Computed example of a mutant assay.
Amino acid sequence: MKKSIVLTSILLIFSISEICACSCYKKSVTENYKGADLVFTGKVVEVIEQRVIDSIPTANKLNPFKIRRYRRVEFKFKIIKLYKGETDSEFVSIYTTGGISDCGNYFQLNSKQLVYSYFKDRRLNDWSTERKVKPYLSTTTCSQTKELRRVKRKEKRKLKKLSGIK
Rank of each mutant, 00 (worst) to 15 (best):
R71K: 15
N105F: 03
T87F: 08
Q50C: 09
V73F: 01
K66E: 11
Y95H: 09
S89W: 05
P64N: 09
N63M: 10
V52F: 03
V45K: 04
E74F: 09
E86D: 12
R51A: 14
I100Q: 05
F91M: 13
N60G: 05
N63H: 09
I94S: 09
E74M: 11
Y83W: 02
A59H: 11
G98K: 00
E74C: 07
I48C: 04
K84C: 02
D102N: 07
P64D: 06
A59R: 13
S89L: 11
P64S: 06
A59I: 15
K43R: 06
G99F: 02
K61T: 12
Y83N: 04
D54C: 06
C103W: 00
I67E: 13
T58D: 10
S55I: 15
K76C: 14
V44P: 04
T96I: 03
R72C: 00
C103N: 06
T58E: 12
S89D: 10
I80F: 01
N105K: 08
F91I: 14
S93T: 08
I80A: 08
R51Y: 11
V44W: 02
A59N: 13
K61E: 14
R71V: 15
I53T: 15
D54Q: 13
G98Y: 01
D88Q: 14
I56D: 07
L62I: 12
D102P: 00
S89H: 05
F77V: 04
F75W: 04
I94T: 08
I53C: 06
N105D: 07
K76D: 09
K43Q: 03
Y106G: 08
I94V: 15
E74G: 02
V45N: 07
V73D: 00
K61R: 14
D102G: 03
Y106P: 02
F65Y: 14
K84R: 13
Q50I: 07
E90G: 08
N60E: 12
G99R: 04
E86R: 05
P64W: 10
G85T: 11
R69W: 10
Y70L: 02
E46K: 15
D54W: 06
I79F: 01
S93A: 12
Q108A: 13
V45R: 04
I80P: 04
C103K: 00
V73Y: 00
N105L: 08
G99L: 08
V73P: 00
E90D: 15
S55F: 13
V52M: 05
I67D: 10
V45F: 04
F77S: 07
N60Q: 09
N60F: 05
K43Y: 02
R68H: 04
Y70T: 01
G85I: 07
Q108W: 06
D88T: 10
I56Y: 10
K81R: 14
I79R: 03
E74Y: 10
E90P: 09
R51M: 12
I48V: 13
F107G: 07
P57K: 09
Q108C: 10
E86I: 13
R72V: 01
T97K: 00
I94A: 09
T87C: 11
N63P: 02
Y70W: 05
C103R: 01
D102H: 04
Y83L: 01
R51V: 13
R72H: 01
